[in-house]
Write a protein that binds this DNA or RNA. Structure first.
Lengths: 189, 189
DNA sequence: GGGGCGCATTCATCTACATTAATAAATTAA
DNA sequence: TTAATTTATTAATGTAGATGAATGCGCCCC
């Protein structure tokens, strides 16, 4: 079974004290499709590692419209980074869009990372850098690409997600309405 | 004088070997307004620490239009994270919009970070997390806010930048045209 | 296996913002 | 100082994508 701690161990063969402490602090949950794991407004938001299934994170704007920030399939970590890094209430909802098995990494678990050996932390730094790189790309795409170009890019980058989620969710991720996505797909063929 | 290495030292009082090696590998440059420090397409892009002045990073789309990704005033680090983390050619241009004093952190300098002591790396991790949080916020704003709301948010968050750069650059950062920003500002009063 | 509900599609209309263009004001250069 | 080049403003027109509403389809569930 793959889990967060496996990933942590990848550059550190020792099952040292800290790693064990972190492992012990993780909560395992099994959730049904539609379960909301976290709501906007909640203080000290968690991270969620997806062992099986599929999650989404999203905001709801003042008109009640949902905007998807990320999808997280197997082996992905999903969280409200803004809330975590600035210690502010969560802005993101996190919800299962398939029946899922999740590892919950609490604020407290995260603080234990401080004690992890240097190589493990350096590894985490590299992973976070990639996450940042992906977000940079996302911002630039939102600013300079048309809806059609963003859709092309999406199906190229996440072909598996395209198969698994209804189109209205992809539209929401792209920042357009389901209707717009539908007409856009028609013009394609 | 503030510099990157000062920041590195913040959690680590020792001037150890690695820190010195990194310090020695940094290049100091003084550039005139308008100088392009880095161009899209270049392999192995650098990071730039702004000691004095103001930089911008941006893409140029296929229609030749410029889209600003970030501004970097004093004490900020600016770089093409996507290119750095994926080892791919730069997509961002980096350019001085005021006469500036810059510390160049080459790819090679960055690799030396691997040897830095754990607390320093952990500190870097925290800083990167904040950067990530800011990017998350940016994505969500681009998806769910109108141009007007994004402008309000910008002047609240970066009042200093508003004073220092021409409006067309702010428009470019917000993802709208200078004309749109102008009319939007008029309706304000 | 029929009733209900979420989802995709299509079409008519609307709107936020882009584009083009012209002019004025401000900044830079010579 | 004047000339040249950016920059900001205003207005007319165009357009990508939003909104609202209607229709049909698949799918779950009793």
């Amino acid at each position: 079974m793959i889990s967060l701690t496996n990933l942590l161990n990848s550059s550190n063969k020792l099952d040292d004290d800290v790693t064990n402490k972190i492992k012990a602090s993780l909560k395992q949950v099994v959730v049904k499709k539609g379960t909301v794991l976290q709501r906007s407004g909640k203080m000290s938001s968690n991270s969620y590692f997806v062992k099986k299934g599929l999650l989404k994170s999203y905001v709801i704007d003042e008109k009640g419209k949902e905007h998807i920030f990320t999808f997280a399939p197997e082996n992905w970590l999903i969280s409200d980074i803004e809330s975590q890094s600035y210690n502010s209430p969560a802005v993101l909802f996190i919800e299962a869009i398939e029946d899922s098995e999740i590892e919950i990494i609490s604020k407290h678990s995260l603080e234990l990372f401080k004690e992890l050996p240097q190589p493990v932390i350096y590894n985490e730094l590299q992973r976070l850098l990639k996450r940042c790189g992906t977000l940079q790309r996302r911002v630039l795409m939102l600013m300079s690409f048309s809806a059609k170009e963003r859709y092309n890019e999406f199906i190229k980058t996440y072909p598996d997600i395209v198969q698994r989620v209804p189109q209205r969710l992809i539209a929401s991720y792209l920042g357009i309405t389901p209707q717009a996505l539908s007409t856009l797909r028609k013009k394609y063929k």
